[in-house]
Design a protein around this nucleic acid. Sequence first.
RNA 1: GCCCCCUUAGCUCAGCGAAUAGAGCGCUGGCCUCCGGAGCCAGAGGUCGCAGGUUUGAAUCCUGCAGGGGGUGCCA
Length: 583
Amino acid sequence: MMHQPESMEDRIAARLAEHVPRSAADLAELLQTPPSAEMGDYGLPCYTLSKYLHRDPNEIADDLEGKVGLPAGIREARAFGPYLNFFADRPMVTERVLGRIHRLGAAYGSDNQGAGKRIVIEYGSPNIAKHLGIHHLPSAVIGRSLYRIFQALGYKCVALNFLGDWGTSFGRLIAAVERYDVEDPDGLTVSDLQDLYVRYSREAAENPELQGTARQAFLRLERGEERATALWNGFKEVSLREFDRVYGMLGVGFDRITPESLYRDRIAAMLEQLRSRGTAVESAGALIILLEEEGLPPCMVQKSDGASLYATRDIPAAEHRWDEYRFEKSLYVVGNEQSLYFRQLRAALRKMGHGWADRMVHVNFGLIKFRDPETGQARVGSTRRGELLLLEDVLNEAVRRARAKIEENRDRFEVGADLDELAARVGIGAVVFSELSTRRTRDAVFDWDRMLDFEGDTGPYVQYAHARLCSILRKAGQDVGADVDCSLLAMPEEWALVRHLERFPAAVRRAAEEYEPSVIASYLLELCADFSTYYSAGMREPDRRVLCSEDRIRAARLLLVDAARNVIRSGLDLLGVTAPERM
RNA sequence: GCCCCCUUAGCUCAGCGAAUAGAGCGCUGGCCUCCGGAGCCAGAGGUCGCAGGUUUGAAUCCUGCAGGGGGUGCCA
């Protein structure tokens, strides 16, 4: 239903193709935006053409200037040295862009390229019995944003939380509860569980007997023994409650939890099959899949003591996803440090004959590091140095700072009734936007002031622009209609905004292609900067305000303002950042 | 040793084959007779890590080197 209309680039390219030995598609790729509006709105560099025509690019541009046909919406073609630039019929282009946004509303930027296709996205995936730390932030917000982006492009998305709830460490916890005679195991909090784990590990370091007890406890759990299972269920429950709460603060949710334990019963059969088919071989008592032909080290699927490990659970989990969803892509939003492991996993699945393994994508991201106060070196966080920040603490601090800022501005702005809610939206918006505003593969050094900044290129800056747009529309007190005279939008700042709004759908598509939410964050920052410039132009010149005295101009400007509001709102939605109407 | 990520302004980052390399922060100087200053305008500030190569054209692609980070069979 929402077919992509021909872009202006496509139209120009079609006309160019009549005179030049290149396909319209290639020519459309070549078109770019000139450095300044005085030089035109679309530009064709003629260097590439000179290769095919064996002529000076300056001559080619000159020649085409006179010959090329102009599509509707273009009023002039002019050569600038080796470039052939096109000048838009601005009112016509403006009318088309604003009309389309007005008609589509929140659906502008959406597409149906993914119709009938499914994308599975694994993100979050914390271990139970531990708090969520700041290092859980990237996966959660990148995953959730990609979910929304692919959804906007028409894909059916499935968000999976691959909960870490299986392994020998839970035997240790069960043993700890029993050893320390915990009175009310059901009343244990996640903090209690972390403490018990640490206490037990410490004691086990000196008393090897406890290691054995822990292993026994895990065996009891594997056998389904009642007491062990009840305790483990309790750990899970209390953890999930906390995860829900903290992920909820971020606006992050899941369609389905697929805990590692879900696959425990399939492990034995899988290992047997790997062994009998010769896909996996024994080596030093362990079971491994050789991946030499892929140039990779072997992937271990069973330890020499018979215990399972990551891949033992990840292989059946991947198969399960394929059986269940027949995905177009299966995304794993996990850190850079797992990049070798991920390639091994994919190669192992390929070796098992799963052609769909090539549809698996590692959406990797950089580590959050901490600055060592003594050496000044950045490094990964450690609990001992007290650097492991809880995600919840960071979010609460963000909200606290947002509230202080709101109170500071209280007499100037009409904040809504619910100050708490607004502080949460702004504070958490700042954190999420900050995480999504740089390319994901880059490592980041955690910095309170940077992550919780509200000025400059930040989430609150975008939210603020949105709130100002909403404020104009409120004050206008009239309905926005599309039946306006777009030639009245004659300010250069208005044209810059229109050009920017025109590019939103392309930004969404590129974000999806690159699995890169930052494309949208950058887009929004530029759009908001254009709007703020436009807005400020009206500060001391009433004629240049949106709410000016001339009715027809005001109506046209309101249509533009509403379009900008709409796109900012949609863009923030794709990032998982809320857009308050006042702040 | 081998593999992966990173290296652009004092700091944090965009730009990923084309017209003078762009933002934000910080610094300097302007702007609230207000459609919201969480804002706007102007200025200073860059041998795009180094060396080769490909190309009409390279911050962008290729090779090598250096620096930082991560990984590298029984954690995930």
